[in-house]
C-alpha cells in the first residue's frame, strides 16, 4: 500500500486530550507540544471538543466514560481515538473498545510511546477510512451489477438480442442520456411490466 501518512503531516494533526489535569495529563500535553502538535486539554463534562479535532486522547475512567461518549457525539467529528489506561483489566479494555480506541497509552505516562502511538493510530485510522471507502464503492458496484444483469435479460427477451448487444444498447442509452448504466437498468426494470405484451 502506498504511504498513507507522511511524517511531515503529523505536526498538522489537531489533538484533544480528555484527562484530569494531573501529572499524567500534563505529561501527555507536554509531550504532544514537544512533538509540535496543537492540543486542547479538557476534563469537565461540559467542555466542548474543538470542531477541527482529528485525534482524541481519552483517559478511561468508569465515571467519565458516558460524558466522553456524549462529548464525542456532540462534536460530530470523525476522530481517531487513543485511550489512556491505568488498568489492563478487561472491564477497562471494554471501555476503551467502546470508544473505538485504536491505540493505548499506559500510565504512568512516559514520553516514549506517545509519538509512536500517534503515528500508528493515525496510520491505522487512515487505512481503515480507505478500506471503508473501498468497501462502499464495491458494495455499490455489486448492487448495480445485479440490476444491470436483470435489465440485460429483459432486453434480451423483449428485443431478441444477444447478451453483448443488449448490454451495448443499455450503455449507449446511458451515454446519450448522460446518466449511469445503473439508472438506465433501473428504468428498464421498473417499466418492464408496461412494455411486455400481455
Amino acid at each position: 500500500m502506498a504511504r498513507s501518512l507522511r511524517f511531515k503531516d503529523v505536526r498538522d494533526i489537531k489533538i484533544t486530550l480528555v484527562h484530569p489535569h494531573d501529572h499524567d495529563g500534563i505529561e501527555i500535553v507536554n509531550q504532544i507540544e514537544r512533538i509540535g502538535c496543537q492540543v486542547q486539554h479538557l476534563w469537565q463534562a461540559n467542555q466542548v471538543i474543538n470542531v477541527e479535532t482529528e485525534v482524541l486522547i481519552a483517559g478511561i475512567f468508569k465515571e467519565n466514560i458516558n460524558s466522553i461518549k456524549s462529548q464525542i457525539k456532540n462534536s460530530g467529528n470523525d476522530m481517531t481515538t487513543i485511550a489512556v489506561l491505568d488498568y489492563e483489566s478487561p472491564t477497562t479494555l471494554e471501555m476503551a473498545i467502546d470508544l473505538n480506541a485504536v491505540a493505548i497509552i499506559s500510565k504512568p505516562v512516559r514520553s516514549f510511546g506517545i509519538f509512536a502511538n500517534l503515528v500508528i493510530a493515525r496510520w491505522n485510522w487512515n487505512r481503515e477510512q480507505k478500506l471503508k471507502k473501498r468497501i462502499h464503492r464495491l458494495e455499490r458496484l455489486v448492487s448495480s451489477k445485479t440490476l444491470v444483469n436483470k435489465a440485460v435479460l429483459i432486453i434480451m427477451n423483449t428485443q431478441r438480442l444477444s447478451e453483448d448487444d443488449a448490454y451495448k444498447l443499455i450503455r449507449t442509452q446511458a451515454m446519450s442520456k448522460r446518466t449511469s448504466i445503473k439508472n438506465i437498468a433501473e428504468a428498464i426494470i421498473n417499466t418492464e411490466d408496461l412494455l411486455t405484451p400481455k
Binding site: K62, E63, Y87, S89, P90, T91, T92
Partner: peptide
C-alpha cells in the same frame, strides 16, 4: 464499591 476491583470481579 465504586472502583476497579469490584468492576472486574463482577465481570
Amino acid at each position: 464499591s465504586d472502583y476497579v476491583f469490584p468492576y472486574e470481579i463482577n465481570r
